[in-house]
Design a protein around this nucleic acid. Sequence first.
DNA 1: CGCGACGTTGATTTGCCTCAACGATTGTGG
DNA 2: CCACAATCGTTGAGGCAAATCAACGTCGCG
Lengths: 191, 191
Amino acid sequence: MFTELNSFFKNICRFDDATLEEIDKSFEVRHFPKKTQLLRQGEICRFEGFVVKGCLKTYFLNEAGHEVILTFPIENWWVSDIASFHEQKPSRMFIETLEDCTLLFINPQEKEYLLDRFPKLERAYRLMVQRHLATYQERHYQSIAMTAEERYEAFLERYPSIPHRVPQHLIASYLGVSPEFLSRIRSRKVK
Amino acid sequence: MFTELNSFFKNICRFDDATLEEIDKSFEVRHFPKKTQLLRQGEICRFEGFVVKGCLKTYFLNEAGHEVILTFPIENWWVSDIASFHEQKPSRMFIETLEDCTLLFINPQEKEYLLDRFPKLERAYRLMVQRHLATYQERHYQSIAMTAEERYEAFLERYPSIPHRVPQHLIASYLGVSPEFLSRIRSRKVK
DNA sequence: CGCGACGTTGATTTGCCTCAACGATTGTGG
DNA sequence: CCACAATCGTTGAGGCAAATCAACGTCGCG
């Protein structure tokens, strides 16, 4: 029984326990050691993963070959390239574990089957996508309306646990600044 | 009969004509003159609008009181604050017409009713949200990985019709640069 | 006509990047 | 268990992209 995943669906759709158990059957528990690549640019994303334990990064490579971090999925978040997964087209994204991870994987066929069998699930997935959307909207606003220093403050407030788990230069990439500059921001703050 | 809206649903769900007509009944045709505010910061968004005709802007205000443009919804796009609409919580967003507009509005209760009656519609809406998500993801990447000039080129390519319809300083705001700087980019290009 | 909205141009400033050098810490093979 | 490499964070110097401030020309419109 996948307690955390059940909670996710239960909160949204009020399924009974028997249904939740049925849903569980479409997911597969997968363990990945740190630094495993789950998706590479050019591949088609064949999973949606629910993070039971661990921390990952999703990122693009820019022309200079540098990582541009999009998200740090952690416990109780979903990780996938949603567009690639649904349209079965090549992804531009990389997904990689930063820690040893336990994920619940579902593949496109199983998801199709689930949605067919439990149409109410569409709602849960729509909400999942909506949350991702709200996240990106907020970050877009921040990237235009706030300085790097303010974005860093906002990040600390919203994801207090991540700075302890993730190297600083990856956080710099997430914030859209150079590692050197994030270091300077932090040293200014100490005063 | 709302031809464009029907196409949107039909492409995704293959409804028959009788069903499409049923769906139409939940939408209301609304006309708005230019410069009408449909949503203000602090209000709860009570509509999802399908743009039949016209052009709008969605934006935030930053601390300095300047507009930060998020999108320019035009024909065959949806306009709403999705998060505010679904969770019935106050929005941080403004929505305003830039031209005289014809929209098809649906309110939360009607949408609830529709989804209850035609669960397959959940899929259409999920896809709508996914498209918005993909858009924001792309813009986020652009804002970090590309210069203002490259973003402007990408904008022209993707939305060739908008520059003719929208004042230049709003496009600057959309791109995240000052009006002066967009002017300089354009003058450099002429050479 | 006169006003406001809009776009352009110049001068100056600033936020952030790049390059480079240097400690500190962690990891790994011998 | 040590030696050495790799990874990571910090600091300094210099440079560039883009913001800000200010002035001015143009157009549409009441």
